[in-house]
């Protein structure tokens, strides 16, 4: 009997031209799941706004009578603090990006996603980035609104764009870090521990709460290489209406940092982090 054995080499499913719609379909579905979670369990969203709000009110009040000359240009402390707390809000929100992924790993839900013929497993990462970016930006905008209500100012239209761009770059970088940790660490206990340890020290070792010249030299050095500072100072300048890219935003011990350089540093950091975690993601998601 003659049997026409299928030529398996050629009967494999080909990479069809429907790659882009399929990518969109799976990314949209994964993102929607995260948003359904967010809407039905809004405590993350609310807590992420409440905590910085309390910082803003309590810290603002604590240093309301800060000695004259502490802040450049006799700025009110609350006005100074606002930029720091806005960045802290976005930073904390993004730092939690890895948690849902870690829970999916631990509960085996990730297996469900990985056993499906996803067009690209990068859509899992992309969905996380989309989700956490919108979450962080919404939280930051809420804090900006609160700061405005407290009389700490509001950036103009162009200033707002600069604020959002700065936050976006920081959120990308921190999301990359957190997703990397979510795949590198063994479980959520360890991830929460790292988040806990990283969160506040990075805030203190930045220019969020006090200017550089108020700090001892070693701390000023730390603050001048802290990515949070690179986000805080452009936002502080956006609030002050200084939007030029060549505007010096930080007089660091190693030299002056312009607004353009600060943004570039954040962008490079974000790209570097995603490049660093890529092999890890490839391994874990292959």
């Amino acid at each position: 009997m003659t049997v026409i054995t299928p030529d398996l080499e050629h009967s494999q499913p080909k990479v069809s031209d429907s790659a882009v719609p399929e990518l969109l379909q799976e990314t949209f579905a994964l993102t929607r799941r995260l948003f359904i979670q967010l809407v039905r369990r809004p405590s993350t969203l609310v807590a992420g706004v409440l905590q910085p709000l309390i910082w803003l009110i309590l810290f603002g009040a604590l240093f309301a009578k800060a000695p004259a000359g502490l802040l450049p240009g006799e700025m009110a402390y609350g006005r100074f603090l606002a930029a720091g707390v806005i960045v802290f809000t976005a930073f904390s929100g993004a730092l939690n990006a890895g948690l849902p992924v870690m829970f999916d790993r631990e509960f085996g839900f990730l297996d469900r996603l990985l056993v499906a013929p996803l067009r690209s497993r990068f859509s899992i990462v992309l969905a996380s980035v989309l989700h956490i970016t919108s979450l962080s930006l919404v939280q930051s905008l809420a804090i900006m609104g609160a700061a405005a209500a407290l009389g700490y100012g509001w950036p103009g239209g162009a200033g707002l764009l600069l604020v959002l761009l700065t936050l976006l770059l920081l959120v990308f970088a921190v999301t990359g870090l957190s997703l990397g940790l979510a795949f590198a660490l063994p479980g959520h206990i360890e991830l929460i521990a790292v988040i806990f340890v990283v969160n506040l020290p990075l805030l203190f070792a930045s220019t969020a709460l006090a200017p550089l010249d108020f700090m001892p030299t070693w701390l000023a050095w730390l603050a001048s290489i802290n990515p949070l500072t690179f986000a805080i100072e452009p936002i502080r300048n956006a609030y002050a209406g200084n939007l030029g890219l060549s505007q010096v935003v930080l007089q660091a011990p190693y030299g002056n940092v312009t607004l353009g350089a600060a943004l570039l540093a954040l962008a490079v950091l974000a790209m570097a982090l995603f490049l660093i975690i890529r092999p890890l993601l490839d391994r874990k998601l292959s």
Binding site: R40, G108, A116
Partner: peptide
């Protein structure tokens, strides 16, 4: 199609939402 030993579901989704997600992952 794979049915794992420990059923991993997203408690916060409805059955229909989970099935829709799965269907989208299969395009």
């Amino acid at each position: 199609g794979y049915v794992a030993q420990e059923v991993a579901i997203d408690k916060i989704l409805s059955g229909r939402e989970l099935l829709t997600l799965q269907g989208d992952l299969h395009h």
